[in-house]
Write a protein that binds this DNA or RNA. Sequence first.
RNA 1: CGGGGUGUAGCGUAGCCCGGUUAUCGCGCCACGUUUGGGACGUGGAGGCCGCAGGUUCGAAUCCUGCCACCCCGACCA
Length: 492
Amino acid sequence: MSKKLTSRSEDYSKWYNELVVKADLAENSAVRGCMVIKPYGYAIWEKMQAELDKKFKETGHQNAYFPLFVPKSLFEAEERNAEGFAKECAVVTHYRLQNDPDKPGKLRVDPEARLEEELVVRPTSEAIIWNTFKGWVQSYRDLPLLINQWANVVRWEMRTRLFLRTAEFLWQEGHTAHATKVEALDEAKLMNGVYANFVENFMAIPVIQGVKTENERFAGADETYCIEALMQDGKALQAGTSHFLGQNFAKAFDVKFANKEGKQDYVWATSWGVSTRLMGALIMTHSDDHGLVLPPSLAPNQVVIVPIYKSEDDLNEITEVANSILADLRSKNRTAKFDNRTTHRPGAKFAQHELQGVPLRIAIGPKDLANGTVEIARRDTLTKEIVSLNYLAARVEALLEDIQSSLYNKALNYRDTHSTEVNSFDEFKDVLENKGGFISAHWDGTNDTEDKIKDLTKATIRCIPLENKKEEGVCVFTGNPSKQRVLFAKAY
RNA sequence: CGGGGUGUAGCGUAGCCCGGUUAUCGCGCCACGUUUGGGACGUGGAGGCCGCAGGUUCGAAUCCUGCCACCCCGACCA
């Protein structure tokens, strides 16, 4: 394995793959399309989970857990949903293996052990959950029902990439039931806002909130809200979705309740999710040719201390200083680690922590001992400064806060300079080819036009932004009248 | 599922056309010593069913047949 990462300009996608593996986030497994998330990568995912889980609970949701398997008959109950996912389902057909009579030492599927009804490995859980909700809802008093589950799902993708698209992935899926349409719509918007808030403030990634066009809508939804982020290579990434499901699932699974007037009515539904794909968004937004760059709020270690010493005495003295820094940082709820491995030299440690995106590195050597100082290096700018021990605590706080906000601002600035309004199809193609990023253009509102643009350019409508100014115009492709601009981009 | 390609040590590779001593080199790994303010150096060492199964041959990593796996490009997709 070479020491240096392939640079982004050389081969962006190679850079991404190498970074994921070398920073020890994840690796490919023996199972096609399925990854192993390694401890360092999982620690970052756990930080995301913890914060999201807190936000879900603050908005009144409770966690529960539903089965991995969905009987085929339940899966097909909501037709549009079933149709949308049918082509990418793993299906369990048998429940037993046996010794293969023709190949000693090998196993085969027992042909006698075919399941009466096939089980679909969930690509999403609406079916099994709505079948369950039927038993939980009788009256308006049982509503709203606000449930979330943390789970794995399987979508049998043709081409996979670590974190961005894997056959199995981890996610959370919220499923809620409401007495009124307005309430369900509000819930879908609320949760989309929770995602936007989390991704922007915690992951330092600016997002556009919007609604999907009919083409891009979730199978079985009446409306899909989403957050869209722009990656460093000019491609968009859908970072989260929140669906207003209308009464589609309530009708498919016969989930009715008695309202205050004593009349039976179908409940209104939402579902919403974010996945380990957020790890991909994180990497592709902030990282550089030296490796991962983590916003402090997601870094498993916000600060790492590296000792530089010639003698045992030096090391002992450095350890004392390091321990008092650690204690101080921990008392401020900062995570820090003293990297006192004797098996690696300082240069190797510097390189490793840079590769893994540790926001701040403190180096302490003989010179520092003599002067009562340390050297602090920040990962995002790669700049160093000498700080007196007396001011260290305050300086670390200030730097961590500054890194968090400047990562966001840098990403926002990139997005702003890579969002372009175009008014002709030539301009559209030119910007898409030569500049990339979001393209704001008028569209006549038809699926047909959207499909044709996709065929010609590979760009899709990422969303119709929620905070869209109304503006009359003509469709960039057909010249037909349009009421507002929509956001196009090539997408992951 | 179409088109293209690749399987040699943990990783990356040479050798393959044109069969012939003990399968090449680098990284990594192990031991000892010297080192430690940006990926250390020296010496010694370990590690291989050359993807799998057949075949041709005195002899196969190398030639032939079949199989398997993976990668890239399309169609599909969070």
